[in-house]
């Protein structure tokens, strides 16, 4: 047996550049890009999920949109109901793709892939943000399909480059935000079975307590409060202002962007702290 060795241990000093290793923006960017590139390769190789997930928004637009459009029961301002609904359905499809992202991470943990990444020097924040940006890339593919559907259904889309850029930004921000939220939930629940249950419970309240399919103005007081703290409302608001001709914003584009960005940053910071716990 080896005797106790405390006298033999070299002083456990941190290297002078240990802090820089952890917080270097260049390292963060490099590792985020590495994660995103690998995810994009997988998406390109098997895009079936994107097409499978297009069925739901198609049903909302075709069935729900057509029926509710004929009722003329909702105060949608200058927009017809289709034009009002299309940005909401785009945001919904982004939400649905992103909110189950956490299950991929639990799956990667169960396969041992995540352990390998966690044993690498990559900053935890880069691992989380890489996944978030990857969700954004997937959501762009999904968004393109929703855009095509809206075009076919003669929604008056705004094709100006500035508006399209804003829509892209909104899609990526929303997907990154909800996928990071999903990763945070995965860190807490840790198993696929529990995650599936909680994922279903989260999705519907986020969707219905937002301005995706009806305006906040018609909601009862308590639901208005929930809708105002729901990030999906701000994503829909941003999309509604940019995606369709004649679209308007309730909160203001600056407010929408500020809330989505700050919520994303807060979630990335929290999830980065929680992330190591998923492999323990």
């Amino acid at each position: 047996m080896t005797p106790p060795t405390s006298k033999m241990l070299p002083a456990p000093a941190a290297r002078p550049n240990a802090w820089a290793d952890r917080y270097s923006p260049a390292v963060f960017l490099r590792d985020t890009t590495a994660i995103v590139s690998a995810e994009l390769v997988k998406l390109r190789r098997d895009p079936s999920e994107i097409f499978a997930r297009s069925i739901q928004p198609a049903l909302w637009l075709l069935v729900f949109g057509q029926v509710f459009g004929k009722l003329h029961a909702l105060p949608t301002g200058k927009l017809d109901y289709f034009s009002f609904l299309a940005p909401g359905i785009l945001a919904q499809s982004v939400l649905f793709i992103a909110i189950f992202y956490g299950i991929n991470v639990i799956w990667e943990r169960d396969l041992g892939i995540l352990q390998k990444l966690m044993a690498s020097p990559a900053p935890r924040g880069a691992l989380v943000f890489g996944k978030a940006v990857s969700a954004g890339m997937r959501a762009i593919a999904q968004g393109t399909i929703v855009y095509l559907m809206a075009f076919v259904m003669q929604v008056p889309l705004n094709w100006s480059p500035l508006a399209l850029g804003g829509v892209l930004l909104s899609i990526v921000l929303g997907a990154a935000l909800f996928s990071t939220f999903s990763l945070m939930v995965a860190c807490v629940v840790k198993t696929r079975e529990r995650f599936m249950g909680i994922g279903q419970v989260l999705t519907m309240p986020l969707f219905f307590a937002s301005n995706a399919i009806y305006p906040i103005s018609i909601m009862p007081g308590w639901l208005k409060v929930v809708a105002h703290i729901n990030p999906l409302s701000y994503q829909v608001d941003l999309l509604r202002a940019l995606m369709v001709i004649g679209g308007t914003t309730t909160f203001g584009i600056g407010t929408d962007l500020a809330i989505l960005t700050s919520t994303l940053i807060a979630l990335v910071l929290i999830t980065s702290k929680l992330y190591p716990s998923i492999v323990r």
Binding site: P12, A13, D21, K42, L111, G112, Q115, K116, A119
Partner: peptide
């Protein structure tokens, strides 16, 4: 030190876990 310099430790080592850590996709 695994406590004072975990990033330094991770840079200096390789790890093959019990599970399959290569990505099949």
């Amino acid at each position: 030190s695994i406590l004072a310099d975990p990033v330094g430790v991770r840079k200096s080592m390789g790890y093959v876990s019990q599970m399959i850590s290569a990505d099949g996709a």
